[in-house]
């Protein structure tokens, strides 16, 4: 005799499996997108995948370590500028210049962290914004990179990716695919590692984590540097795709921080699933309402407020109140430690 188990735990497990199935299918569909999607669709996917990476990084920083940065545009912009400089002046191959730009930005993040970490809470947020503005002004002063009016990537550099336009789009699409998927995998692996426990504990209660021996300063510092690097990697890619960089576009607080915060907040702060949902909602909304002018922005604001009133952990938080589900199980792996 078989009994159908309709307990809530079982329902949650089934939903979790279904979600993982959907994610797997979505990843496969994205991997094969150049075979079925139009050029316009591919461009949309590239942008969405870039925003997914930016959102995962902002969420890692704000959702887990509680560092609310409104200056992530600093790293997008620096990544873009370092990439242009390395590709144009150092003559570096594009696929090498992108990761090196990210490493260079992460190095800049070291002294920046030293300054920003003297500030707490709201002061930290404002401080990160000010730092990004300083970077923008420095970029605008840099004549070699076009100063305030910006600079275009020489055609030869773009052509070095592939001779044909289709070929270039293909390479760029898979770069975006790689960055977007890697950002999710990176956060997932991090949360499953022994760092994950510390990050989750800090998210729940920072003083308690400290009293349990978690060195919160070190965790925050490393996460700040890591997110700066990956955000800069994404920035380098974004401006390779745009083929042109200006200080205002590179260090735009609206584009690279406000929209990203919107994505994470409506999707769900402090979860891997949240930024994914947020990206879907953000781009769906933009496709539907982009022509509505300022009504589009009003609608976006209204949705953000409505979601937060229902659950401050966003759409994913509201789902989890109903079912105990997880698309990305982050069961921690036992820390291996020697008993010396």
């Amino acid at each position: 005799m078989t009994v159908t188990d309709i307990s809530p735990a079982n329902t949650a497990r089934n939903i979790s499996y279904a979600l993982r199935g959907i994610i797997l299918i979505a990843v496969l569909a994205l991997a094969l997108a150049p075979m079925w999607a139009s050029r316009a669709d591919l461009r949309l996917f590239m942008e969405a995948l870039s925003f997914l990476a930016l959102a995962q990084m902002w969420n890692l920083l704000a959702g887990y370590t509680g560092l609310i940065s409104v200056g992530q545009q600093a790293w997008v912009g620096l990544g873009g500028y370092f990439f242009f400089a390395l590709a144009m002046f150092a003559g570096m191959p594009v696929l090498l210049a992108i990761p090196l730009a990210a490493i260079a930005a992460a190095l800049v993040a070291l002294p920046t962290a030293w300054v920003a970490f003297r500030l707490q809470g709201a002061y930290f947020a404002i401080g990160t914004w000010v730092i990004a503005e300083v970077f923008r002004l420095i970029a605008a002063q840099n004549g070699a990179l076009g100063g305030g009016s910006g600079i275009s990537l020489p055609v030869e550099i773009a052509k070095s990716l592939a001779e044909s336009r289709n070929g270039r789009e293909m390479v760029m699409y898979y770069l975006a695919f790689g960055i977007g998927i890697a950002s999710v995998v990176l956060v997932w692996l991090l949360l499953r590692s022994k760092w994950g426990l510390a990050l989750t504990a800090i998210r729940d209660s920072e003083p308690a984590a400290e009293a349990m021996g978690v060195v919160t300063r070190r965790v925050k510092f490393l996460i700040y540097i890591l997110t700066a690097g990956v955000t800069a990697l994404t920035g380098a890619f974004i401006f390779l795709q745009k083929l042109r960089i200006t200080p205002d576009a590179a260090f735009s607080v609206n584009e690279w921080t406000a929209f990203v915060i919107f994505i994470v907040v409506i999707g769900g702060l402090g979860s891997i699933e949240g930024p994914i949902i947020g990206v879907l909602v953000f781009f769906a909304l933009r496709e539907i309402a982009a022509d509505w002018g300022s009504w589009y922005l009003i609608l976006m604001g209204a949705i953000a407020i409505a979601v937060m009133l229902i659950n401050k952990r966003g759409i994913w938080g509201a789902v989890q109140v109903r079912w105990d589900v997880a698309a990305f199980p982050v069961r921690k792996i036992l820390p291996e430690r020697s008993r010396d």
Partner: peptide, 21 residues
């Protein structure tokens, strides 16, 4: 003051953060 989003076992494991012999 248990960590709300960690399981019982994870709460125990976090205690081993600065583990000594």
């Amino acid at each position: 003051r248990l960590f709300a989003s960690l399981t019982v076992e994870e709460n125990l494991l976090i205690g081993a953060s600065g583990k000594r012999a």
